[in-house]
Design a protein around this nucleic acid. Structure first.
Lengths: 153, 153
DNA sequence: CAGAATTCATTGCAAGTGCAACAATGTCAA
DNA sequence: TTGACATTGTTGCACTTGCAATGAATTCTG
């Protein structure tokens, strides 16, 4: 009859906490490989991966498809441009838009990056074993139901 | 036979990206409730939840158990102290250690916070439906296998 | 017991973040 | 056409973050 019932709540069994903690660890381990081997951040990796997949795209496009604020995209793109991995050109049709493109050097970087990414995913799937399909299904639901809301960390 | 095979890689099917995106959205929606209703951040929420569950604890303890850098814990604790929700006392036995404790005001805050957290988790479980056990199982594996690595955002 | 090594919490700093404001461009209606 | 409104990308700003350095306290070792 004391005030103890609240004490039963334990962060370690709290699903949102567990999800975020697992994601942070996954992300951090992955980011570490990219940073040490190639000197790029997660934001930059996302821009590169999307450019590789989609060809010439605008900042707005990337913002919409990659769960990043436009200012974050913009700055990541500037860093990539400074490093010579992408170019920015104003779109002829609508001069508010930029066309971001991989340079040959950027394509070469992506070609080295992707195998690392695929390998990391593969390790993850192996760790998960038969829990993998369940995770994928759950992520589908969460990504479908929750608003994009930009943030990353 | 062109250079296109790499193009097949799509961030949207990349498991680490999906995990992080889902976690960020979950976390952001949750943080929004806390911030608007109670004016506290996720870092502060974690400290409060752990103090509520564990009683008097040191910064080091929280760092180990809550996936946060000690500097982050330290600053969150200082903000909570300024707001009157916790106290800091030097431990008598080992004077390097702090004992963080909830004040009555902090206990009252937690009593209002926890139902919101439990309700949020409940909503999440309902959205997941029968995908929930699979997610829980996968998170168990990931949290067991991956190094703590601090970071959060 | 003295001095080296370790642990704990805080803080300075550089870098990154989100948000709001902004300039430039484009669209639409009267 | 003109003027109101919308959209795109960048930037200023205040704030947060992680890391390394620091100072205080404790433990270990010879």
């Amino acid at each position: 009859m004391s005030d103890h019932p609240l004490r039963e709540f334990d962060l370690h069994t709290f699903l949102p906490y567990r999800l975020v903690a697992a994601a942070n660890r996954t992300s951090r381990a992955f980011a570490e490989r990219y940073r040490s081997e190639f000197g790029i951040s997660i934001a930059e990796w996302r821009v590169l991966a999307h450019l590789n997949h989609a060809g010439a795209v605008s900042v707005r496009d990337i913002e919409a498809r990659v769960d990043m604020e436009k200012s974050k995209v913009s700055r990541a793109a500037s860093r990539l441009q400074d490093a010579g991995y992408i170019t920015k050109h104003v779109n002829g049709g609508d001069r508010r838009l930029l066309e971001l493109r991989l340079t040959p050097s950027g394509q070469a970087l992506v070609a080295r990056l992707l195998p690392v990414a695929v390998a990391y995913q593969q390790e993850m799937l192996e760790r998960l074993g038969d829990a993998a399909p369940g995770l994928i299904k759950a992520l589908d639901i969460l990504l479908r139901d929750l608003p994009p809301g930009n943030g990353e960390t």
